[in-house]
């Protein structure tokens, strides 16, 4: 396989988390799945655009938060995102 530019460990974690959300979304009803995918995609992309890639403390915080949200989402009794905080827009801390 062609080698790709090596991803940092934290980048791999982010992508793995993203995959986790997409996998879990598949287990929901088609309509709910679509909504989850849209919200999650927008969330990850917004964070990718807005967060300084060297702000490791904040990124790791978001990863932990995301993993908790994913675990909640895996609960079959949770049919959607309304009970999650995913819809909040993160406001990156201005650490200077």
């Amino acid at each position: 396989m062609a080698s790709r530019s090596k991803l940092s460990g934290i980048q791999r974690q982010v992508l793995a988390l993203y995959r986790g959300f997409l996998r879990t979304a598949r287990l929901k009803s088609p309509e709910e799945r679509h909504r989850i995918e849209s919200v999650v995609s927008a969330e990850f992309r917004e964070n990718a655009r807005n967060i300084d890639r060297k702000n490791f403390v904040y990124i790791e915080y978001l990863l932990r938060r995301g993993k908790k949200q994913l675990e909640q989402l895996k609960d079959p009794d949770i049919t959607g995102l309304s009970t999650l905080e995913i819809n909040k827009v993160y406001k990156p801390l201005n650490l200077k």
Binding site: L15, Y18, R19, L22, R23, S41, F44, R45, A48
Partner: peptide
Amino acid sequence: SLDTVEIVM
């Protein structure tokens, strides 16, 4: 990278 994840999925 996010697109690539989606492609693989």
